[in-house]
Write a protein that binds this DNA or RNA. Sequence first.
DNA 1: GACCCGTGGCA
DNA 2: TTGCCAAGGGT
Length: 373
Amino acid sequence: MSPRSARKARPEPAPSTASSSRPTLLLAWYDRHRRRLPWRAMPGEASDPYRVWLSEIMLQQTTVKAVGPYFEKFVARWPDVTALGSASQDDVLRMWAGLGYYSRARNLYACAVAVTRDHGGVFPDTEEGLRALPGIGPYTAAAIAAIAFDRHTMPVDGNIERVVSRLFAVEEELPQAKPLIQQLATTLLANARAGDSAQALMDLGSSICTPKKPACSLCPLTEDCAARAQGTQETFPRKAPKKSGTLRRGAAFVVTRGDELLVRSRPEKGLLGGMTEVPGSDWLAGQDDDEAKRQAPALKGLSRWQRRVGVVTHVFTHFPLELVVYTAKAEARTRAPAGMRWVPIATLAGEALPNVMRKVIAHGLGLPPAASS
DNA sequence: GACCCGTGGCA
DNA sequence: TTGCCAAGGGT
């Protein structure tokens, strides 16, 4: 084995010339193939910081397809940051229901209030200023600074991590490799058009340099890609395998009073914070059904509890959940226990119901599983 | 750094 | 089916 092949392979990058530098190739590709997205300014147009910010928050760990309708709903109802800052948190949460990661909605609202009250309704135009706002971390601050204000900074998201780790065949595992990847990604910034450089990498990552079966033949940087030269592009980025959580079990109680349903709000902090739910037991690993059922709400004038056949399952990021569903009917004018309320079943669509609760209610009421919107 | 926090699509 | 992944942030 020759000394060269024994090394961790790192092929020499092709020498770049002024006319074929990576940032230039990238922008040329972007100008031909950029996606048209609702929050993205047309070429030559100034971008609206409010729309950039709103889209960046919604896009955190969330696909473009899922965000689209939510973004349209939000800007239609709240066309600028001052309008959003003047809304109520409940309205914002209701509008966000179904998108997931609900702390984003609370921080979104807190941020709009802060910008309205502390910044005269104008977003800070520096990374540091943005970083100080609720819900804006290192990535989002850099993204807004680059895209909305053309600051010379490179946001690094999952797409860019993948593109860069392949381009330079970064052997170090994530998340330890983040500083190195940030440094390498910054070399891909064009002197002008920082925001377009970043969006070019994101578009490249989502449409060409995909996690599986990347379309290397269509990539403007294919001649320059270290992983491609080794044929190992799908193995990047390197990362340690992650462990899955332990199954938790619990019970949920679907109580109806005529055409109304008994619900309550979850605590502000923590899992599904501030969202609406039907009363239920704790969700614990190893909990048996009898123990969970003992946590049923106490109401007067209730018919017998009926256990629905089957269970509702849901998988959160850190654990799978299995819920047994019990139903009962309450007599007319039965009072809701403290902290709970009756809501008309017809208006449930407007409630801040996370998907797991939509499943529970559908199961409890004997409805078909809601067609995913 | 390790955990926590949703949901939908994909192979 | 199970696991991975998606424009991350907060604690």
